[in-house]
Every structure is written in structure tokens, then in C-alpha cells.
């Protein structure tokens, strides 16, 4: 036997449950950022991302990141099923803090690089890459 109050509660619960997956998906980028920064503030600038404006093949998109003075760089693809792409830790034998690699992008999206500087502060940059053919093998 359902009272009106019960019915309402079930309805609210169902709405909350169905909204969860979307919330979880949207949170992955923020979670990835928080996991790297530990919740510290992230400034902008000081990081240069070089990537093609239009990538014909999302399976292999060349990306170069430079962040002078960085100790660590994390690279995120904000529109991929999993946002994390790579983390680079520079050791004492590293030269200029630069890396180049090739990444997969599922669709048109922003890619983001966050650098952890030697003094523990964080700075970031983001750039949009338009993808003609997605690279997630959907």
C-alpha cells in the first residue's frame, strides 16, 4: 500500500538515480584534475600546447606540450570516455620541460594540460581540437 508521500519519495529517488550516470560522467574531468592537484588552485598560462586545429584522424593526433619550470605535466582529453591521457614526471636528468606524443581523441573536444611547477603551484592551458574521424573505435 503506497501513501501519497511514499509515491513522491519513490519518484524523487528514481529521478536522482537516473541522473547519477550523467553526473558521474561530467565529473571525470574534474576528478582527474582534483586527483592531480589535490584540490589546489590552478592558474592559467605558462603552458603551451601545440596540436592541430583540425585532426582528420582521431586515432593519432600529434601533441606537443611545453611548460618551462614544470616538474610534472598531466594531459587530459575532456571529451574522451576516460579523460586521463598521460602524466609526465621530469627527473633530475630532464632538459627543458617539453614532451611530444600522439594521442587518441574520440570527438571534437578541448585537450588540457596541467603543469605542476617546481614550487608546487599549478598552471594550465587548454586548446580545442576538431576531430573528423573519432579514435575510440566505437
Amino acid at each position: 500500500m503506497f501513501t501519497r508521500r511514499d509515491t513522491l519519495a519513490i519518484g524523487v529517488g528514481a529521478a536522482a538515480a537516473s541522473a547519477l550516470p550523467f553526473a558521474a560522467f561530467a565529473a571525470t574531468v574534474d576528478e582527474a584534475i582534483a586527483a592531480f592537484t589535490g584540490g589546489a588552485a590552478v592558474a592559467e598560462g605558462g603552458v603551451t600546447i601545440t596540436a592541430p586545429e583540425i585532426a582528420e584522424n582521431g586515432n593519432t593526433v600529434p601533441v606537443t606540450i611545453e611548460a618551462p619550470g614544470a616538474a610534472e605535466i598531466t594531459l587530459l582529453a575532456t571529451g574522451n570516455p576516460a579523460a586521463e591521457v598521460a602524466v609526465f614526471k621530469f627527473g633530475p636528468g630532464a632538459g627543458n620541460a617539453m614532451v611530444a606524443t600522439r594521442i587518441r581523441l574520440g570527438r571534437t573536444q578541448d585537450i588540457m594540460a596541467i603543469a605542476k611547477m617546481a614550487d608546487g603551484s599549478f598552471t594550465s592551458a587548454r586548446v580545442e581540437v576538431k576531430v573528423t574521424i573519432g579514435g575510440c573505435g566505437g
Partner: peptide
């Protein structure tokens, strides 16, 4: 020469046949 230059964590979004370029002193 026994000194760490770079330590990289790769996820699934790195392309096949991973290419990695960096600088070493």
C-alpha cells in the same frame, strides 16, 4: 647515466605504437 630523465604514465588514449619525445641533459 643512472639519473631519471622522465617517468611517464600512459593511459588508453595514447595512440598505438606510442611515440614519445622529450629532452635530456
Amino acid at each position: 647515466a643512472g639519473v631519471m630523465v622522465i617517468d611517464m604514465t600512459l593511459h588508453g588514449a595514447i595512440s598505438a605504437n606510442p611515440y614519445i619525445e622529450f629532452e635530456a641533459v
